[in-house]
Design a protein around this nucleic acid. Structure first.
Length: 288
DNA sequence: ACCATTTGACCACA
DNA sequence: TGTGGTCAAATGGT
């Protein structure tokens, strides 16, 4: 018997999802405004905290609804809420959900890899990540990333549990609605606790040199770099500068945004957008 | 020196 | 007992 949750998810109209995305985007914008007002003493921290909660609620609501979008896969097989009894007994009470993407996703959280395993009947290793702030904040969110056998250019990321750390705020800004991107809105969260930029970022945008990078003038990526990004991903060639393990593609470099030593401060949105704006839909790929 | 990743060992469950 | 998940010492990069 189909669960009510699953039935409801399958019936959610696309425009409802879009509307939730839009609402979250507005909440994010409002939070920025409030933050400015808070600095000037016109708004209490409580108000800003409320907006944070609103934005977080949007994120939580969207997680089961939007998880299929980037992978373009059926809900039933790849993005269902795993509410069945058959789940890891070590994570009995943890909710899980899965995303299928064309590359390991940057989800705005900081992860630390704590292991990898060969999985039976799987060609590629499965990598295990926990929240970087597990010991600082007691955040028990984890994820597992594995390259998919049937289509080895795709990666499956299984999330287990929700973030309870301060990093949760960051995820509120992941995948803002398209209008914000198209209109070139800048969301500058002005936090120094954001994850440092992943080295792979520069391999996607060769025109941006790390040594020449000036955070003050890179409010968003120029269109030509976005084009390069898309076309570089569109090919199935090995990613530039991506490390190769003995088992093939090494996902560890792409799934963490934890402290690398790059002394630069790209805004989080810059690269969060990239993963959610580009759907890597085959029909849209340039034919070369 | 510090921190993240790697990797073999260990543990829990079916 | 096999398998998947986690731990922790070793290793490597900055």
């Amino acid at each position: 018997m189909e669960s009510r949750v699953a039935r409801n998810l399958s019936l959610v109209p696309e425009n409802v999802t879009e509307e939730i995305f839009r609402g979250r985007g507005y909440a994010a914008q409002l939070q920025i405004v409030l933050r400015e007002l808070t600095r000037s003493g016109q708004v209490t921290a409580t108000a800003e905290d409320l907006v944070t909660k609103i934005s977080r609620s949007f994120t939580e609501a969207l997680s089961p609804l939007s998880c299929c979008e980037s992978g373009k896969v059926p809900v039933s097989s790849d993005c269902q809420l795993d509410l069945s009894k058959k789940r890891s007994t070590r994570r009995k009470m943890q909710e899980t959900w899965t995303r299928i993407t064309d590359m390991p996703i940057e989800d705005g959280y900081t992860w630390r890899k704590y292991g990898q395993k060969e999985i039976q009947n799987a060609k590629h290793l499965r990598s295990y990540f926990r929240c970087t702030y597990r010991f600082d904040s007691g955040c028990e969110a984890t994820k597992q990333v594995q390259r998919i056998e049937a289509n080895s250019t795709k990666f499956q990321t299984k999330y287990i549990g929700h973030h309870t750390c301060q990093d949760a705020l960051k995820s509120s800004f992941v995948a803002m609605d398209d209008s914000i991107v198209e209109e070139g809105y800048l969301l500058n969260f002005e936090t120094k606790t954001l994850p440092k930029q992943d080295p792979l970022f520069f391999s996607f945008f060769p025109s941006i040199k790390q040594s020449e990078y000036n955070p003050s003038c890179s409010e968003y990526l120029p269109p030509q770099d976005l084009t390069k990004f898309k076309s570089s991903v569109a090919t199935t060639e090995p990613l530039p500068s991506a490390s190769q393990s003995s088992h093939g593609y090494d996902i560890s470099d792409h799934t963490t945004s934890s402290s690398s030593s790059f002394d630069m401060d790209l805004e989080l949105m810059d690269y969060v957008y990239l993963n959610d704006v580009f759907l890597f839909n085959d029909e849209e790929l340039p034919k070369t």
